[in-house]
Design a binder for these strands. Structure first.
Lengths: 222, 222
DNA sequence: CGGGCTTGACTGACTGTTCAGTCTAGGTAG
DNA sequence: CTACCTAGACTGAACAGTCAGTCAAGCCCG
């Protein structure tokens, strides 16, 4: 692998390089399997320097988790802006969570989520972050609903209650997808989530193909 | 702590003691934070003996994960037998997953699940187990539905499709509960899941209290 | 030349695993 | 019944590898 790092970058960038590297590695290998030496190598720095910036390994990994989540939500929010109909916006939400690789975010984000949960369960500091982040996620969903309602695309439902249920459903589905469950492939997960939203929000959404049978292999949209 | 271990038990029991100890510890501290020394101490044995039975640490922890999941599903299946109505059976399913501590199973089972997912993502061996176990879980749900249909308690729906969606929803809800999200407390998760099932299965279920407000502190049923 | 950045070399602690035996129960021969 | 023997359960002590974090010294930019 070529060292694409300019050996000495502005210190702010250095930090970010390391955070990004750490986030990627956590996603690939898992939280506890990530060594600071690995992070250093990927960021094009020495292990000592990593400790220089983040004084402890735990701190680095913790910040990396936060960094990645933050990036994820920001990206989604930005993309959301570009879409005009509630249907498209909902599709975006579902697709970014239920379909393997969104573009622009840190790759391997799934492993990251699992580790985030596992860590949150035991470290109150991380737990607090996660709760906040998840609330933001539900707010995003609720806002899509409310906007759709104002435009008359969506019927009269409790947006917040819907957000809670819908985010739970999406989470559950994406676990299966991430773990490559043969019964719940990305297309199916997408179809289930959208069908649920359509029924619940009183909006029309026709699946492009029969939801159960998936006869023809199809290349993923990119 | 009193050594409740009879120093020398039949070897089959020894194995199980260790598996149980390992499963508990994984739940409490997490997969990677579990030392074989800890397992040994809790099982009333020496570290060397643990290696004597399971030749490697990974093997021990892997088997412990499987052991715990297996125990969980068996317990649920047994309890299901004792219930006669579909409504009660569904309540059981939701309660055992969405409410903190089921009785009889390994405590701290939640951390276990997160670790199971994290491990499954990276170790195909574990992934295979998980898929199989999850399929069994969905089958359990589907069977409850079909039985209910035969008894005329449940309307005409695709039991398998329902099982997929419902299990995803439950998973998502229980993540929030496990992570003590203030918005999704156990009662609320329970209410959401049951409401979904009721509507989807065309069965009546009245929440015992208003689903949103939870005014009075209430001791958990035991 | 001063201070932040960067490093290689080092270390101290931890921990999975090995090993060389000890102990016990049960079997067997005398 | 006794003495011996064997096998398997079990252990304490050491080993070896790994890795987070330290340090003293250089580097480079302003």
């Amino acid at each position: 692998m070529p060292a694409e790092t300019p050996a000495s970058a502005p210190p702010d960038l250095r930090r970010e390089q390391m955070l990004r590297a750490a986030a990627e590695l956590i996603g690939e290998r898992g939280f506890s399997e990530t060594r600071i030496a690995d992070v250093a190598r990927r960021a094009g720095a020495s292990p000592a320097l990593v400790i220089y910036y983040f004084s402890t390994k735990d701190q680095l990994l913790t910040e990396a988790l936060r960094f990645s989540e933050e990036a994820f939500y920001r990206t989604v929010a930005a993309k959301l802006e570009t879409l005009r109909s509630a249907r498209e916006q909902l599709e975006l939400l579902v697709r970014t969570t239920c379909v393997p690789q969104g573009e622009g975010e840190i790759p391997g984000a799934w492993g990251l989520w699992f580790d985030l949960w596992a860590q949150a369960l035991r470290h109150p500091e991380i737990a607090k972050d996660r709760i906040e982040l998840d609330q933001r996620w539900r707010d995003t969903i609720a806002r899509v609903v409310r906007d759709g309602q104002q435009r008359g695309e969506i019927g009269d439902v409790d947006a917040d209650a819907f957000a809670i249920t819908f985010s739970a459903l999406i989470d559950g589905l994406s676990i299966q997808v991430a773990l490559r469950d043969p019964v719940v492939d990305p297309e199916r997960a997408f179809a289930i989530a959208m069908a649920f939203a359509a029924r619940e929000l009183d909006v029309t959404w026709r699946p492009r193909r029969a939801p159960t049978a998936a006869p023809s292999g199809r290349s993923r949209r990119r």
